[in-house]
Design a protein around this nucleic acid. Sequence first.
DNA 1: TGTTAGCACTCAGTAGAATTGAGTGCTAAC
DNA 2: GTTAGCACTCAATTCTACTGAGTGCTAACA
Lengths: 349, 349
Amino acid sequence: MARRSTPPHSADTDLDARKATILEAVVAEHIDTAQPVGSSAVAQHADLGVSSATVRNEMVSLEREGYLAQPHTSAGRIPTDKGYRYFVDHVASGELGAAQQYQLRDFFSGVRGEVEDVLERTSALLAQLSGYTSVIVGTSTSHATVLSVQLVNLERRHQLLVTVFSDGTVLKHSVLTSIDIDYATCLEASSQLNALLIGTTLDVPVQVPSRPDAVSLLIAEAVAVLHAERPAKDGEKVFIGGASKVAEVFDSVETVRQVLSILEEELLVVSLVEDMLDRGVSVAIGSEHGFAPLSSAAVVVAPVHVDGVTTGAVGLIGPTRMKYQEVMAAANAVSKNLAHHFEGSAGGD
Amino acid sequence: MARRSTPPHSADTDLDARKATILEAVVAEHIDTAQPVGSSAVAQHADLGVSSATVRNEMVSLEREGYLAQPHTSAGRIPTDKGYRYFVDHVASGELGAAQQYQLRDFFSGVRGEVEDVLERTSALLAQLSGYTSVIVGTSTSHATVLSVQLVNLERRHQLLVTVFSDGTVLKHSVLTSIDIDYATCLEASSQLNALLIGTTLDVPVQVPSRPDAVSLLIAEAVAVLHAERPAKDGEKVFIGGASKVAEVFDSVETVRQVLSILEEELLVVSLVEDMLDRGVSVAIGSEHGFAPLSSAAVVVAPVHVDGVTTGAVGLIGPTRMKYQEVMAAANAVSKNLAHHFEGSAGGD
DNA sequence: TGTTAGCACTCAGTAGAATTGAGTGCTAAC
DNA sequence: GTTAGCACTCAATTCTACTGAGTGCTAACA
């Protein structure tokens, strides 16, 4: 379905030069005006020295091949998802505007703070830069190792397990016990947990001594709670920026509702983005991703590679007639800057 | 501006019985139908044995007094913000429906996990129960005391400061140093920090020994980072549920955009809710809260008291013609359940 | 004095007809 | 293969007329 790079002639999908020019003109114009595009507009705008009649003939052919559609007989043409796909695959991805480049550099030169915080603010920035709702996903930390574990005595039967990972993630879990735990027990359990867990990853099971004393009980409980985390995709933090843009860029209220309700479900967003990453797709148009409620939307993602490893992705969501060139440029630029930021400073996400 | 309870006669705002009935009928009907309400509808619906002509006369008077308004001459009346205010102040707050009560009980009987997690899910539940977008705010932890501090060596010049508070909050901060720190130094600093900070609150300054050795430098840096947190309202976590409802309950796309953009700004939400809590107001209609972009919205809040202290609030946002009775009932019920949950189990938020 | 029946009036909303015009497809000539 | 020309289509716009919900006012009534 998805064709990536730009081989000049790949039999199936390719169009002759003139058709391609016409198609591109229609897509560009429609992205710009949101209106159906007529043959004469194309004839004037794109400078192929050809009359509107000729353009019309080509358009009929493009429609037959599924790149264009007509809302009704006496209207111009609008691109189909396939038309957008061609456009995305065959049009240079474009550069970021100077003002935006400056803004980006400015932001990243001054940014400080915790990973979550940086991602949150980056997400807002990306939304502002691109004009669309942005999504930043930090992928699973399942391969980060435990750097430190600590049990803190909150109440007699309520301990807090604080785990620090090598990538800087901190997890907290409540450990509830059926017996009272005193300070000394807590301390001892803490130190044994450290010995037990430091250097391990969460996906490797750990042998817990099953003696019936308080310390062992506490340890067993703590390990159980910590490892229970696994099945639910955790560590995959999602940061959404510019959610209000949804109401700006989609015209139907119903679509706005649907997109918002997708964005509400972190799990859906994560799987959408990760699925695209897995398939090596950077743009999903209309129904190309399997999410029916998003069938009138397009998603652009750019992976974030830190030290050669994909640690997350930035994405943008908009209508299928979104400004692909700018959007892809923005996503790529932000992902590169993010990667650089995390390579430059300490551990990535 | 805002009048709270229901004193039967408070001179200024009160209406005679018939006018009150008519006003209530108009408000109730308009909330139900979203249409202007005519005199005959009121005459039939509300059972004051009086003709539509009489109702009309009263309506003229109610309009003069600012409770009702007419979209145009030949239309019925719709309530003004003042009209809604009267309605809210003088109509019993209503009970939660049986099905919803069951759902609530079911949820809270089975709920487990970290505070943040519980609040997140509660927020989603409240949105679902009420049909409107919900907001849960956990107020500042400035009076929680430090239970434990720990420095973890992430990289040579990058330490992670993990602080656990008596209310179960865990904060993490990066501490970047200009000199390399080894494990022993980190450990020593950790233990001194514990001695220094345990039992203190963040709003009390701490005397840091200013010797030039690595340990002291690290300690000074850590304390500085931790206390720097203060000015920015932190610890006030905001959980938003059912954001997509915004697109359902407001009819103008522009309003949807504005409400969403308010919700994007956690700080705004927090100050809005806290302002209402401070003023002891549970419902803010139209422009009663100072937020211009929300002038066509109403906000309902209910404080969450744990062990006699206000630890947060639950809120709902909808159009001024929202279902106040149900919404207030839902907010109150959820706030009580939350309070009970945190009193029952361990430390609140 | 408060209530009400009656009536003229207002005006958004709807429906239908006429018009416009952007844009098409087709054909015939170049 | 290209294009000028033309008949045709059809959404969108404009106009008119009509409808009817609802009002305000007045005059009569209890």
